[in-house]
Amino acid sequence: MNKISISLNLNGTDRTILVYPNRRVVDLLREDFKLTSVKEGCSEGECGACTVIFNGDAVTTCCMLAGQADQSTIITLEGLAKDGELDLLQQCFLDEGAVQCGYCTPGMILAAKALLLKNQSPTEAQIKLAMSGNLCRCTGYQKIHAAVKSAVVIYKDKMAQGGESID
């Protein structure tokens, strides 16, 4: 088996790596790039724990081969906080008590982030739809939903006061 070269923009930095192709993107991120916020829950695209933002979309990395990451842009939870400052969504998850065991949290925050990158004033229904691919077995959905809603409201206020864009 020949190794393949994968070049991607990972959390804002261009990276190139040689790997065996029989790895999934979740393995590439966790094992090769040591980005262990990416969690494996079900290994079949049913739980959303391994969600990252791939070329702007939320995707489940357990159903992607490493080679699919070539020439892509990927954001993991490690890429959200900038210079020690939490992303608005991270802050809202903290403030709203949206974190319980924490295993679904990275995927939840990234699913919400992928939504907000495309639509900065989503409706409740749009938030629910965007979060519908992520399971929380602790069943803290209400608080998770409240955290995303709260981020939308705070963001709108900031924009009204002439703040910066969400990304």
Binding site: L35, T36, S37, T76, L77, E78, A81, L86, Q90, Q91, F93, L94, D95, G97, V99, G102, T105, P106, I109
Partner: peptide
């Protein structure tokens, strides 16, 4: 705020 929540939203837990 839960004592372990910060690490969990940062993904460092």
């Amino acid at each position: 705020v839960k004592v372990d929540a910060l690490e969990k939203v940062l993904g460092t837990t």
